[in-house]
Design a protein around this nucleic acid. Sequence first.
DNA 1: CTCCCAATTGCAAACGTTTGCGTAACCTTT
DNA 2: AAAGGTTACGCAAACGTTTGCAATTGGGAG
Lengths: 343, 343
Amino acid sequence: MQTKPTTIKEIAQILGISVSTVSRALHDHPSIGLTTRAKVKKLAGELNYEPNQTAIFLQKGKTLTIGVILPELSEAFFSSAISAIEDTAYKKNYTVLLAQSHDDEQKEKQLVEKMKNHRVDGLLVSVGKNTSSYQHFENLKKYNIPVVYFDRIPSIPNIHYVACNMEIGTIEAVSYLLKKGHRAIGMINGPQTMVATGERKEGYIKAMTKNRLKYDPSLIVSCDLTEEGTKKALDELLASKRKPTAIVTFNDYVALFAIKHAVKLNIKVNKDLEFVSYANLPLINYMENIPAASVEQFPYLQGQKATDILMDLLHHQGTGGNEPSAFYKVIIESQLVENKKQD
Amino acid sequence: MQTKPTTIKEIAQILGISVSTVSRALHDHPSIGLTTRAKVKKLAGELNYEPNQTAIFLQKGKTLTIGVILPELSEAFFSSAISAIEDTAYKKNYTVLLAQSHDDEQKEKQLVEKMKNHRVDGLLVSVGKNTSSYQHFENLKKYNIPVVYFDRIPSIPNIHYVACNMEIGTIEAVSYLLKKGHRAIGMINGPQTMVATGERKEGYIKAMTKNRLKYDPSLIVSCDLTEEGTKKALDELLASKRKPTAIVTFNDYVALFAIKHAVKLNIKVNKDLEFVSYANLPLINYMENIPAASVEQFPYLQGQKATDILMDLLHHQGTGGNEPSAFYKVIIESQLVENKKQD
DNA sequence: CTCCCAATTGCAAACGTTTGCGTAACCTTT
DNA sequence: AAAGGTTACGCAAACGTTTGCAATTGGGAG
């Protein structure tokens, strides 16, 4: 006993009026008499009428749907971001079409096509780390589908984005350690290829020079973000002439690897060797030995802002000029957050 | 210079043929001559024609979209599951419409409405923990929208679901500890209201009786899953006459809280007091003191199975009888996984 | 040369809405 | 009482596609 959904047409027929009247009545169009309006609404309620969105989509050319493409759903950072995106979109009555690229450029391209075919009104993207060309995204401009990038943004001009600048956070992190009396501060940085690696290094150097301390290049080591690489990096740092008493790590994963290794080396974490990291993980709360502080990158906030921007774009487009006068470029300054003491 | 997407109609006009011919040509309909077929395809390629899905949706009454409603996107378990769902759906050319209920029954209801209006072909649901009525889901049957529940399933008959049975896993967990020589095994269980709490308790008791050991009720304590509650629970256990040498905890969060507390009490974790837990967290790898073993609940697998079932339902419906002859009831047995030694 | 069938193609309805425009009926004003 | 203005509603096109059926053509067979 499948119930076929009620249509506006059926209501019209039963009431002996035209579909247009029904449609207008349901939308409280002023040109419809109160009596008919009431009748229509009553019957619609009784028949449990629900407008068929797909028909409306077709008619209006809008789907009230935004697409989201990101590298990996199961990563904590992105799952936070997507949570924010969904929340924010929901408030504006938009729905989220979700897809993950698994950092595969080819799949990313296909997903863009799929999103386009689904006629999403706009797109939120965090690009895969292997993506080298952004043409597939740029193409969407022709179809008037706005794209807002977040977190992992392409290095091309004329795009909307929200991202987190690691430099300030790093300066804060280093300053925090300096204030605590550390002078030999090491850094386990990421691979040279990543933008964020550069930002962190810049921050480190700026913090040092600002405090009239000289920057010792041997205190910054790269690593490939794996556990093995982290171990090596830590060993390297501990073996340097100026053995660091504190270390800034590229992210929480690296920090935890390093801490794990340090514990094994019988180093008293956060006493003999203090750690500061970047907050990728929400689970720091559950652990015994954690970095003393973390640079927060606000995944939820990033997702939220990005969605807000997209909403803005969607509601103010078509107002005359094709080219938006300006591009949103929101930089969220990362911020040092002291982790809860575990006394 | 917005490019309006090419339509089938335009192609027809340019070629001086009818839209139906174009449509059929693009679908390789046998009744279209090869020459016209080739011409159409060529032009379609040049004009970069992409079918308008919303139109197709309307026409076919199918959207190739499945809705997913779950409590909290940012939770590790669910972000794993959604990752699986997206992967699986993608392979079948389906797209995922995502929404989170935040464990709010009211919002959950609204989301169901929204999904219905978006005309999703099917729905994947993990119900909110406060949800008491499942009528909003049941209503979908009338609209021929199949629902597959996973992980958090409602206790009503005639539904499709895939869930994880905690009993077996618990038996394994307790047996594992017994095999290691423990005799006084404590359990920090969840609140009485949850189904999973019962399953765990059952498992515990079965494991004990199977090994001809008597079950000491004072060794099972409930807790509200908060850090404070966990501390109390642990204190209670440690104060009991038969002080446990091993503890099974309700989930990883609880385990980590307990471990944190134990460390503070100068208890040598996994030596004086061994822990076994349920794997909600992927981050166990990064930590120093972790449960010796965890009962894996396979979020990815659950998501995958659930999606497979839904796909099956979608492709075999409308084949005659309305009522499916049977309901999918997939139980994934939880399984004890020994955590990597950290030597 | 006529008839029939197969191979192609076109017509038009349908999916469920929205909306510009036209048109009755009614009411007011002079 | 006629003109003008509201008020309330209907008609029909449009969104882009699919698809049952009709229509056209061609060729071969009788």
